[in-house]
Design a protein around this nucleic acid. Structure first.
Lengths: 198, 198
DNA sequence: ACCTGAACACCGTTCAAGT
DNA sequence: ACCTGAACACCGTTCAAGT
């Protein structure tokens, strides 16, 4: 009857599941995420997803992984055309990170949730590595230019990392007096710069 | 038959549910938390919990609230007997916060999750306020002693907040090169002190 | 007041069977 | 290869009824 009886998803059910899952996550929260409903939305049987994700957790892990990858891309792009000056670079990264966090609050929650089972997620680990490397490299370069205090990279970059992430997380979970949601960004950037300057 | 047929929980089913829920959260993670299993564990019918929590979410909110309250207590206690010197005070708070985060990883996740529905959780909001007030007061006092740079409290305390929370969250979700899990603490404390000194 | 039992509409996961 | 249908053992929530 319907012209799309034979695979609406062009054999790309896996990708379709991920896309739809992220929409649901964004619109209705993580609790509303069900494999059966996803399957219903995509017009396949409830057992079909299991061909592509052995588990609900596997779907969530894949979602988290794609989140880290896109975040790395956003952070990377934030440095385009920014002069090699640590203050401007830090400002750009912080704004990009907080922006990503705001636009993908529920996804970020999932990305940093304590869940993802130890094994099976080497890909996830690699994805997280990629964006932390980005910050590390940024700090390392500035250090080479003498704009950042000396010391092992883990010592100089770690607190930047922590402050960046902490501010975004607090802002996203509504823990901040809302009157400074925007102003707070400048304050945090200035704080980071004070903390890393030579 | 059994001597405990009449209310094993001495009419304190609500408290018993919270206690057991937190055990399950700690031992088996949030996904394993089910009202029905909780009821089974406590020897009541599966419908009994609804007398005390209108919702599963209500149970989770109550759990989060008790988390914030205990965290405020731990942070408060961390200042006992600490000399009025901002460096020592910050060190004590940071260690206390990270310690609490480590000991209650899953609970912290829940506390900061994007979930808790806007209404119904005034109590929750109040509980979060209490611990942020603690940090605010600490910074304000040090500021009065001239140990912290001038400026509105939200500007001086906010980044402390962010760094503190960010480090704990990263450490707990295993995002840090584990070799500096302990050493990182010192680095972060030093960074915070650099950021707030006059 | 507090709890039970049954009922309803959902889940995730597995597995034979179809194409 | 990829998907279906039925089956199994679970869920959360509601509501009459019991004590």
């Amino acid at each position: 009857m319907h012209p799309r009886t034979r695979s609406y998803h062009h054999g790309d059910l896996r990708a379709a599941l991920l896309t739809r899952a992220e929409e649901t996550l964004r619109e209705k929260g993580p609790a509303a995420l069900s494999l059966r409903e996803l399957a219903r939305d995509l017009g396949v049987s409830h057992a079909a997803p299991s061909r592509h994700f052995k588990d609900k957790q596997a779907l969530l892990d894949a979602l988290a992984q794609s989140g880290f990858e896109r975040m790395a891309a956003v952070l990377g792009a934030s440095q385009d055309g920014v002069p090699e000056k640590i203050s401007e670079q830090v400002e750009a990264v912080v704004r990009a990170y907080v922006g990503f966090a705001r636009d993908n609050a529920a996804l970020l929650d999932l990305m940093y949730s304590v869940k993802h089972d130890p094994e099976a997620s080497d890909a996830l680990l690699e994805a997280t590595q990629r964006w932390s490397d980005l910050v590390l490299r940024l700090v390392a370069d500035a250090q080479a230019r003498g704009e950042v205090r000396e010391g092992p990279l883990e010592h100089t970059a770690l607190p930047v990392f922590a402050t960046l992430h902490g501010y975004a997380d607090l802002a996203v979970s509504g823990m901040l007096p809302p009157e400074m949601d925007e102003h707070g960004l400048d304050v945090v950037i200035a704080f980071i710069l004070r903390g890393i300057r030579p």
